[in-house]
Simulated scan of single mutants.
Amino acid sequence: MDSTDWIKVKPEVIKTDGVLTYRLQSTAGGFECSVSALRWVCDNNVSFQYQFGSWDRHMERLAAYRPAGPLLDIKVISGKLREVYLPHWICLDHSPDVSESFAVLHVHSDGVSVERGSEVTQCHIKLFETDFSPRGVLMKIGIKVKMRCNVLIYKTNNKHVKLHVYLIPRDAAVLQAMEQMEKDDGYRRIKKPNPNKCFQMQDYFILTTDMATAEIIPRVTPVSPVSVPRIGMRRLTDLDRACATWQLQAGVPAETVDVFKRRLKTHLFNLAFI
């Protein structure tokens, strides 16, 4: 199916003991979840639900792979899914030869296994089977790839504005984790357009601002699919003056760190995924 042929469906969101469940139902056809980008094809009415899982507990057994999409725990309530496509955030436009490096994690009662998908598309991997347990897309470690990213900006409502800026993979599970963490800390999201370009994994990025009184404070945390690099940018001005522009630039060689610190008063962080 062409990307324009998929009908987007908004899921019903159910929160139980702090855990979000996304419930979907459809008639026959090809559909895409508006939250996770999960796609499915069915011949008759179907109803199912999913939750985002955590990669952390499985990473020790996946030494040769790293996550390349959300881990989804799918459960069919009624009907049957004929085809299922798991989302990934690897940019194939820049790495057309990496299709053989994809795999799918299958979490089952006896442990985990790594399987092949039956088809790799620009944003998805088609599953061979549609019997469900937690599954997610993997990419072999050591393969140089670019990825589609989102930039998230969160702010406080205090007199002295404080921003948290994140560069994350285009992964709904990571976004959900960020939204909850920032909400718990009293921050709200400023919605801005996401980058159109893809970013190289293991590359360096710098955050700059044109406001002389803005202070950029690096805060780098261990990086994983649910623990992303974070830079807090505190603006030492009143709220009505906090309108400076800032840029995120890529491809900075490591040896230029000191130069950028002196000239731009910024700091570098490394975007990497375990």
Rank of each mutant, 00 (worst) to 15 (best):
T4H: 11
E12W: 01
V19N: 01
T27R: 12
T27E: 15
T27F: 06
F31G: 11
S36F: 02
A37D: 13
D43F: 08
N45Q: 09
N45H: 10
S47L: 04
S47K: 10
G53E: 05
D56Q: 12
R57Q: 14
E60K: 11
R61V: 05
L62P: 05
L62G: 06
A63P: 00
A63M: 07
A64D: 12
A64N: 10
G69R: 04
L71C: 03
I74H: 01
I74Q: 00
K75R: 10
V76D: 00
L81P: 05
L86G: 03
P87W: 01
C91P: 00
S95R: 03
P96L: 03
D97Q: 11
L105G: 05
D110M: 13
V112D: 11
V114F: 02
G117P: 12
T121Y: 09
T121A: 12
E129H: 12
F132M: 03
P134Y: 03
G136Q: 01
M139V: 10
I143S: 06
K144T: 09
C149N: 10
C149I: 09
V151Q: 02
V151D: 01
I153R: 09
I153D: 07
N158S: 14
K162Y: 06
V165K: 07
R170H: 07
R170Q: 08
A177Y: 06
M181D: 14
G186D: 11
K197A: 13
C198L: 00
Q202N: 14
Y204F: 14
F205T: 03
I206E: 11
I206W: 03
L207G: 06
T208H: 03
T208E: 09
E215Q: 08
I216E: 02
P222A: 01
P222E: 02
P222W: 01
V226Q: 14
V228I: 08
R234Y: 10
L236P: 00
L236R: 12
D238P: 00
A242F: 08
C243S: 08
C243F: 04
Q247W: 07
Q249E: 13
P253S: 06
E255S: 07
T256H: 11
V257W: 04
F260S: 05
K261V: 09
F269M: 08
N270C: 14
A272Y: 13
